[in-house]
Design a protein around this nucleic acid. Structure first.
Length: 428
RNA sequence: GGUGAGAUACUCAAGUGGCCAACGAGGGCAGACUGUAAAUCUGCUGCGCAAGCUUCGAAGGUUCGAAUCCUUCUCUCACCA
């Protein structure tokens, strides 16, 4: 199956420039996607462009991942209703390094391979361009009229937009356009891909290629991921779901996918896994037979977690999920040895506690409030009256006292608020 | 620089001297139900066991009493230059 066809049946294709598909069928093509270094880790929203590059590579083309060290300094106004704060250079460098490292986990950058992926940073060619050069060589080719017509700009100039837009962000599309032109010239890169919000920026690039180099460049965008309930994809109450295991533990990462709604799961399995059409259709059919088993969610969680964090991390996430949500009891918990226990609870927030405190008996209220698990004594009491507090998976009342006999592996106490919120006390 | 409007808890937003720890909505959290879901219902959502304490942009002041009145300051927005 060819690249565009693949994206199409997976429901990822949003917009494609005429003749792009024909060109890709006839030519081994170099194409790129840009990644914004707004943080030192990518989050699951970036998985989609990564996966597109992976499909691209699988189809035999040459993918380039561009990290926006320069464009990140300018700030992309697309989809933003407000002017962004600029990152300082130090942060940006750190972010670029972090993002680079993560991309390497997904794409084959092995230079001996036939169509190895390549990683570039646009700072490398942007840093030496002077303002005069830029204004004469780039600015001259694109009219303000053209730039103003872009959605990302129009929205900010609307009467009801109160934010306005700085010259800096207005210029952004020229930066990104220039990247495309540069890659076209230097690496014969003729295709830029990205999220549908990038269409405007990408076409500025193809326009620049056409006017400045009399070349033909192509564009392709994918659908932005939405959730059926209208909330933002990749966000939880605790913030973004990151690809970095230190920011979002593999367990939480797996849980995010497991908690997808049925509706979303059907589209996610096509987008986020590389399973073939028959397999996916069979899974969907099977899921509909018994939705409560959540076959789709589990499969997505498995595939994506393995791809992102590796098999071992996935297995621990499963183990943790079974213990935390299965019918396991205090007895089961106590039967775990220290290592298994730590693997399972990797990523669960913890606090250290003196052994003597437990020996003297730790009352339930301070156990929760003084460890910063819950904010205040009042909150603990409230939670107790809601019957939502558990110690080692067993509901407790406000007169409960934690003692030595509650220790797991002679070292841990598992505190719990509600069904999903855990906290670990570690005896030192 | 000029004129006008505004700043209330996570967000929006009522309150214009005591009945205000502050209406309401959203969000969040929890309980029931369930599939670790959706929908629904219920409770909670400044600190404190409580008496009470600290909050309504900041600082002062008037008053027995201020989110509400006065003064100064800071910031935001709109229109004009």
């Amino acid at each position: 199956m060819n690249f565009v066809e693949e994206l199409r049946w997976r429901g990822m294709l949003h917009d494609i420039m005429p003749e792009t598909e024909e060109y890709l069928l006839k030519n081994k093509t170099t194409g790129y996607i840009g990644f914004d270094p707004t943080a030192d880790s990518l989050h699951i929203g970036s998985l989609v462009p990564i996966i597109i590059l992976m499909h691209f590579q699988k189809a035999g083309h040459n993918p380039i991942a561009l990290v926006g060290g320069a464009t990140g300094m300018v700030g992309d106004p697309s989809g933003k209703s407000d002017e962004r704060n600029l990152l300082d250079e130090e942060t940006l460098n750190k972010n670029v390094a972090g993002v680079k490292g993560q991309l390497a986990r997904f794409l084959d950058f092995d230079s001996t391979s036939e169509n190895a992926a390549e990683l570039v940073n646009n700072y490398d060619w942007m840093k030496d361009i002077s303002l005069i050069d830029f204004v004469r060589d780039v600015g001259k080719h694109i009219t303000v009229n053209y730039m103003m017509a872009k959605d990302s700009v129009k929205k900010r100039l609307d009467a009801d937009s109160q934010a306005g837009m700085s010259f800096t962000e207005f210029t952004y599309q020229l930066f990104q356009g220039y990247d495309f032109y540069h890659l076209f010239k230097e690496k014969n890169c003729v295709l830029q891909m990205g999220g549908s919000d990038q269409w405007g920026n990408i076409t500025t690039g193809t326009e620049l290629v056409r006017r400045k180099a009399q070349g033909k460049a192509y564009a392709l965008t994918c659908k932005l991921i939405t959730k059926a309930d209208g909330t933002k994809f990749g966000k939880t109450a605790g913030g973004n779901v990151w690809l970095d295991a230190n920011r979002t533990s593999p367990y939480k990462f797996y849980q995010y996918w497991l908690n997808s709604s049925d509706e979303d799961a059907e589209s996610y399995i096509k987008i986020f896994t590389f399973l073939d059409k028959e397999t996916i259709e069979a899974l969907i059919a099977e899921h509909k037979q018994a939705p409560h088993l959540r076959i789709l969610q589990k499969k997505i969680g498995e595939e994506v977690t393995k791809m992102t964090h590796g098999v071992e991390a996935y297995e621990n996430a499963i183990k943790a999920s079974n213990i935390l949500f299965g019918n396991s009891t205090a007895e089961d918990l106590k039967s775990l040895n220290e290592q298994t226990f730590l693997d399972v609870f990797d990523g669960v927030p913890q606090a250290d506690i003196e052994r003597s405190v437990i020996e003297n008996g730790l009352e339930i209220v301070p156990a929760f409030s003084e460890t910063s698990f819950l904010k205040s004594n009042g909150e603990v009491r409230r939670a107790l009256s809601e019957n939502s507090i558990s110690v080692n998976k067993e509901k407790v009342k406000d007169d409960f006292v934690i003692t030595i006999s509650d220790l797991i592996a002679d070292k841990f106490v598992l505190l719990q608020r509600g069904k999903k919120s855990y906290f670990l006390l570690k005896v030192i």
